[in-house]
């Protein structure tokens, strides 16, 4: 028996796309193989609009912008490799990726959550303005570039592995955390130019980094920081079955900018 909601969604979807969709116990299963990203995202919008609660995308191979423009608390499970700009401008849903992600995930994301059981490519969290992203493994270059915050909107990006260069470049707000769980004893994060151009927000690193941009300094964490760190680590450990005490046993440091206007003297007269 088809529910009213299902009927409504089905009526909105292109028949060609419909053949990729099955509904089992209120879970919308989509075989994304050979679906173009526009078809896939149109389908997701229709589901989002009509109050679907759980979607599973199977055989995803590089479709871009998955999750863009969605506004409800939809749960999306992705099996495969979603394409660039995963969750760009997303405003609410929770995405779980069972695999790796490519470049530019959470681009300008406004609200919601992404949990990646794998790695992420370059410029993750680009211009992110809210919501949370948890990545189990490593992250590419320029993670958290231009992340920003305003009043109650504050983005969080947590990385279990290590980062490539330019972590937190031009960061303007929010919280970036790199745990380095795959680093050996005494090994530094190889990231260079960490925090170049950063002028607000905070980067927490577990362990040390190789090189920092000249706009930032590394300082000890204070009590307020510890509360934030513990909360994020606890959530991280919940998703990826990591040992909370073991993660917390190593020292965290905080990277913050010297100034809120590092280039004020260069560009302003």
């Amino acid at each position: 028996m088809m529910g009213a909601q299902e009927k409504k969604v089905m009526a909105e979807i292109d028949p060609k796309v419909l053949s990729h969709v099955t509904v089992v116990n209120n879970v919308w299963k989509v075989d994304a193989q050979d679906l173009y990203y526009r078809e896939l995202n149109t389908l997701l919008r229709a589901l989002d609009r009509n109050g679907a609660e759980k979607v599973e995308l199977h055989s995803v191979f590089g479709q871009r912008y998955i999750g863009t423009d969605l506004k409800t608390n939809l749960n999306i499970d992705i099996f495969g490799t979603p394409g660039n700009d995963l969750a760009a401008f997303m405003n609410g849903p929770r995405i779980t990726v069972h695999g790796n992600t490519q470049d530019c995930i959470a681009n300008t994301m406004n609200e919601g959550k992404i949990v990646v059981h794998g790695r992420a490519g370059d410029i993750a969290g680009y211009g992110m303005r809210g919501g949370k992203v948890f990545i189990r493994d490593d992250i590419g270059a320029r993670a958290g570039i231009h992340m920003k915050e305003y009043m109650d909107k504050k983005p969080y990006l947590v990385v279990g592995g290590t980062s490539m260069d330019f972590l937190g470049e031009y960061m303007a707000g929010g919280v970036l955390m790199v745990l380095g769980l795959n680093l050996k004893e005494g090994e530094k994060h190889r990231a260079r130019f960490v925090g170049t151009g950063m002028h607000a927000g905070v980067i927490y690193v577990r362990g040390d980094v190789t090189h920092m941009g000249k706009e930032v300094k590394m300082v000890d964490v204070d009590k307020g920081d510890s509360i934030v760190i513990e909360g994020l680590v606890r959530e991280f450990c919940g998703y990826f079955k990591a040992d909370f005490d073991k993660v917390m046993s190593k020292k965290f440091m905080k990277i913050v900018p010297y100034s809120s206007r590092p280039y004020g003297r260069i560009y302003a007269y």
Partner: peptide, 8 residues
């Protein structure tokens, strides 16, 4: 350029 192409 993209992991997805390789995975495919």
């Amino acid at each position: 350029s993209e992991e997805a192409a390789m995975r495919l």
